[in-house]
């Protein structure tokens, strides 16, 4: 009886060992062949530079779920927040460019170096595509006496350094836009940074600040509810989510720079992998799920492929490298 059990155990362990070895051989062979022939063959990680819940996270998660359908492998979002995204950018550019690790690239990839937060930028990245843009909007309380953008500029000119504009944080894209407004209209405001656009908007609702510069999608719900009034979109064209609000270009001004969402990989991606990824991103961009997200969150759905995205990002990087030091110096000189 004991002997029999011993035999059984031996036989069993041998069978398990052989099966395991066979499995290993098949797996390694399979992996090898699929890796050279077809990408992707294993899950892809997508690094998001914010905490879960924000716009970047929503864009990444919707894109990831659509990419899964296109690529046939899981695409897993991983949040690595910190330092306006620099923690995530630094992490991604140091990984192997094998196409199994991608990053969500917001406007901050063109800003963090100029802001002095970290030595990382688009030159360290293999840019894949841009998928959406968010326009800056200037909003005031609905009980405010300012009915038009030009009326606000007039008031600001008569009382320089008096009116207060809230923003989502010093050095944020909306703060930069408020500084661009000052520069273009030759006005002076007091800038009050809050911890995110939601806090700034709450302060405007309580009339602790006179105006707020924030994303069109962030302001739109309050404009539609009638508690805020949007005066202008800092862009050449109107925002689809606020069709009645004039663009500053119509009013005779030319300033403003949008926030955007794109995707990138560590530098040195093999060409076949890049084209496979860009194709999948294009399909995911066209999906109803992503288009609906853009409508709901007040973003403009815009697709730029790797080459156009590179040209766009290089232009943005140059712009921020000259604009950020100039605007910040000006702001300090005024104070």
């Amino acid at each position: 009886m004991t002997l029999l059990r011993q035999c059984d155990a031996d036989a069993l362990s041998r069978v398990v060992l052989i099966l395991w070895l066979a499995g290993q051989i098949v797996l390694s062979f399979g992996c090898h062949s699929t890796q050279s022939r077809s990408y992707p063959s294993k899950p892809i990680r997508l690094i998001v530079q914010t905490v879960p819940g924000g716009l970047s996270d929503a864009v990444s998660r919707v894109m990831a779920s659509q990419l899964e359908l296109q690529l046939g492998v899981p695409v897993v979002c991983e949040n690595r927040p910190g330092a306006a995204g620099a923690v995530a950018f630094l992490y991604v550019v140091r990984q192997r460019p094998d196409g199994y690790l991608l990053g969500h690239g917001p406007v901050e990839i063109a800003m963090v170096q100029a802001l002095g937060l970290a030595q990382v930028g688009p030159k360290d990245m293999d840019l894949l595509c841009l998928v959406s843009m968010s326009d800056p909007v200037l909003a005031v309380h609905s009980a405010s006496s300012w009915k038009t953008f030009n009326a606000l500029v007039e008031s600001a000119r008569t009382r320089p350094g008096y009116y207060i504009i809230g923003n989502s944080g010093t050095g944020s894209i909306w703060h930069i836009n408020a500084l661009l407004l000052e520069e273009a209209t030759r006005t002076q405001f007091v800038h009050c940074p809050f911890g995110g656009s939601a806090a700034a908007i709450t302060a405007l609702l309580g009339r602790h600040v006179d105006a707020v510069v924030a994303g069109a999608g962030e302001v739109a719900p309050y404009v539609q509810a009638g508690s805020l009034r949007a005066l202008a979109v800092f862009s050449a064209q109107r925002s689809p989510v606020l069709p009645d609000v004039p663009a500053v270009r119509e009013l005779g001004w030319d300033f403003g720079t949008p926030a955007w969402s794109g995707f990138y990989a560590p530098k040195g991606l093999p060409d076949p992998v890049r084209s496979r990824l860009v194709g999948a991103f294009k399909k995911a961009f066209e999906s109803e799920a992503f288009q609906r997200l853009c409508r709901e969150r007040g973003m403009r759905a815009v697709f730029l492929g790797p080459d156009e995205f590179r040209v766009f990002v290089d232009g943005q990087t140059q712009f921020f490298e000259s604009a950020i030091p100039r605007l910040i110096t000006r702001a300090w000189a005024v104070q």
Partner: peptide, 9 residues
């Protein structure tokens, strides 16, 4: 922050 991006927040 000792130059560490992780400490910026």
């Amino acid at each position: 922050t000792f130059g560490l991006p992780e400490l910026l927040d």
